[in-house]
């Protein structure tokens, strides 16, 4: 798995000082980075799809973590962005906590059976692991974040 993961996420997918004023602003800024990285063809359209998913039920899973995600025609390659925010954001989280850790998952429409989709599924499962969450919270550098996610 690690071989594929190295192509899946790199320093371009990590932001440690996201200065966002609210949930929507955070998603928009991260969508724009995905467009710059070449994973999303239209940041605004992707952002819209993510917000539509967000409107169904919150993706604030508790523990100060949110995992906004969307399957969107604007995604050209399934990937994710990791961000820590400079200020905690309101996200209507399951446990009421404000969010300062965001995993934004971008999924291409035809991703069924896709290796990257599998990695997002694995990553989602690991968010239930207290040790993984503690390590991610402590990570202060891009390298540290990548190492934990790729482990």
């Amino acid at each position: 798995m690690s071989e594929k993961l190295s192509g899946f996420i790199s320093a371009n997918n990590v932001v440690l000082d996201l200065d966002a004023k609210d949930r929507e602003d955070a998603i928009r800024q991260l969508a724009e980075i995905l467009q710059k990285n070449g994973n999303v063809s239209n940041a605004a359209a992707f952002c819209q799809d993510v917000l539509e998913r967000e409107a169904m039920t919150t993706t604030g899973i508790g523990n100060n973590i949110a995992i906004p995600h969307g399957k969107s025609a604007a995604v050209t390659e399934t990937t994710m962005m990791f961000a820590k925010t400079t200020t905690p954001l309101e996200w209507q989280s399951l446990d009421g906590s404000k969010v300062n850790i965001i995993f934004l998952m971008a999924v291409a429409p035809q991703a069924k059976g896709n290796a990257h989709l599998k990695m997002l599924a694995n990553l989602s499962g690991r968010l239930m692991d207290d040790d993984f969450v503690a390590a991610i919270k402590q990570a202060q550098t891009v390298e540290a974040v990548l190492k934990i996610i790729k482990k």
Binding site: M56, I61, H69, V107, A121, S124, G125, L127, M128
Partner: peptide
């Protein structure tokens, strides 16, 4: 879950845990 991307797998792990 609806999108089948994240909550399906988080819920599975948490039940196992």
């Amino acid at each position: 879950c609806i999108a089948g991307i994240a909550h399906t797998y988080m819920a599975a792990q948490n039940l196992k845990k």
